[in-house]
Amino acid sequence: MISWPAGLSLQREGKIYILPTAAGWGFVLLLVLLLLLSINFENNLTFALTFLLAALMVVAILYTYSNLAGVRLVRATGQPCFAGEAAGFTLQLGSDTGREHQQIQLSWPGSLPITVDLVEQNPVQVELALPTQRRGWCTPPRVKLQTVFPLGLFRSWCYQPVMARALVYPAPLNGVSLPSTAGNTGQGGLVVQSGSDDFSDLKRFQPGMSPQHIAWKVYARGQGLHAKQYAARQDLDIWLDFSAWPEAETELRLSWLCYWALKLSREDRCYGLRLPDQTWPPARGDYHRQQVLQALALYGQVNS
């Protein structure tokens, strides 16, 4: 489908902060010791070395700052997950400064940081995980970019907004069995399935058909090569109905429905979903599953 990328970051990179690290303070201590050494021995070459290192520290401020300046979140996309898991976000980090940016660390509070280099690749994609608690849209906080490169004496950091969201499905819970006669009106359809064992009819064999299904007995009678067709007759379309358990609370019901939707999808069965305000007719396939899960995730939430 043609659509313009939605998650464009409108924000240019924010304010950059910079402060010495613990290693930086250690370096200051080293400078003080060197200065004492120089003063006491009246040695101009140790003075020179001390000043060189002090000047290097000043230069390092600029380098650490410039290592972060110009880096921005080009775009972000969120991948769906189940409540309680970590939602994966694909963040694309890029710069158009023409410089190398090394060891940029991305993190959210509470998430495991990831460190990347913008050297050979620019922009570069990283996957950052954000723990989730509730179903619905998960909108991440601003991502923190920080770096101590090149000398580790200073740490510069900034925050950039993430223009993306991830869909959080309800956590699947296996708790109930599915009501088998959950209000069905339609006719059972005939579905050709390889795994079924009800013999249906014979068909002329065509290249490409599975040789396992060749009806050898028919062939032996000299009636040509035929393949056996199997079919399973499915009596009922399965309906996942929100109103099946009136006594349970909403979130619990959604979790049960989620579990069953996943299970039925795995078994490649045909199922529909009935929510108080929406109905998804029975179908199968990835697309259907996705639609159903999304409906479950967003049920009762203000659609933004």
Binding site: V192, S194, G208, M209, S210, G285
Partner: peptide
């Protein structure tokens, strides 16, 4: 695109 059985 979905039905893969017996297709080319």
């Amino acid at each position: 695109p979905l039905t893969q059985f017996g297709t080319f």
